[in-house]
């Protein structure tokens, strides 16, 4: 199949960018969206032009590196991530807009690559349980009810891709933060730092410039890991309780 691409090209963080028309020719239906870009890049290189820079790594939907907005939608019409999107979802002759994830907190590095290091800084603020290597007790000394373990796993499945932020009109990171806060708050091991974790992660999220949730739920709709929006409700609850405790103590 042949496709008309409109691809965001931007030299670096400081230069202005624009949508550039690029033709994609002889694309097999069974190719993935990123393999389509590989083919386009091969053509560009042979023509002596610079290939389109885009982030990708595992190409099996788990590392969270790929981050394209396709026709305005983070990860496009994929059920999960961009790398798991196959060309059979498109029609021959279609025009496709390919852009980076858009958010002020995710500045463009080059072309379709963005800087998501704000996510790492939020995790560094409190997304952990302090457990010194070598000092843990036997794992079965602390039974965890299956229901709690399953709910924690559901939240822990977040791949940190940032589609939630890119989809949100407020560029809110509350699905991302809510997922980590929920995962750790649901487990008995996470109780000691539960209050400080919620406070620190939310404060860092605010300092980084992410917006707040006003219940559009676009994040849940695009999330490739099916993180439920209920983690945002839990985050609000955790943060409220933590703030009260913090004010009293």
């Amino acid at each position: 199949m042949n496709l008309h691409l409109k691809v965001w090209r931007q030299k670096d963080a400081k230069s202005p960018g624009q949508l550039v028309p690029i033709e994609a020719r002889n694309i097999p239906e069974d190719a993935s969206f990123l393999e389509m870009l590989d083919i386009v890049n091969d053509d560009l290189t042979v023509k002596g032009e610079e290939p389109i820079a885009f982030d990708h790594d595992c190409r099996e939907g788990i590392c969270g590196t790929c981050s394209l907005s396709i026709n305005g939608l983070p990860h496009g019409p994929s059920e999960t991530t961009t790398c798991q999107l196959y060309m059979r979802k498109f029609k021959d002759g279609e025009t496709i807009h390919v852009e980076p994830f858009r958010a002020k907190t995710f500045p463009v590095v080059r072309d379709l690559i963005v800087d998501r290091s704000a996510f790492d800084r939020i995790q560094q603020a409190g997304g952990f349980i302090t457990a010194r290597a070598g000092s843990a007790q036997d794992a079965n000394c602390l039974p965890v009810p299956k229901v709690a373990a399953d709910a924690a796993m559901e939240a822990a499945a977040c791949i940190g891709c940032g589609a939630c932020v890119a989809a949100c009109p407020n560029a809110s990171a509350m699905l991302f933060v809510g997922a980590k806060v929920s995962h750790l708050a649901l487990l008995p091991q996470g109780q000691a730092e539960r209050t400080s974790r919620a406070l620190k992660m939310v404060r860092t999220m605010d300092e980084e410039g992410f917006g707040n949730c006003s219940n559009y739920l676009e994040c849940e709709a695009v999330c490739p890991a099916d993180i439920p929006a209920s983690v945002i409700a839990r985050l609000n609850r955790e943060y409220t309780v933590a703030s009260c405790k913090d004010a009293v103590c």
């Binding site: 070598g134 794992a139 039974p143 796993m153 995962h183 487990l187």
Partner: peptide, 22 residues
């Protein structure tokens, strides 16, 4: 064996049986 202990202490949500054991 110590790896499993360490990971559980960190909050790795391993699969569990209904009794709460791993």
């Amino acid at each position: 064996a110590a790896i499993i202990d360490q990971c559980v202490a960190q909050g790795v949500p391993f699969a569990r049986e209904y009794g709460g054991l791993l």
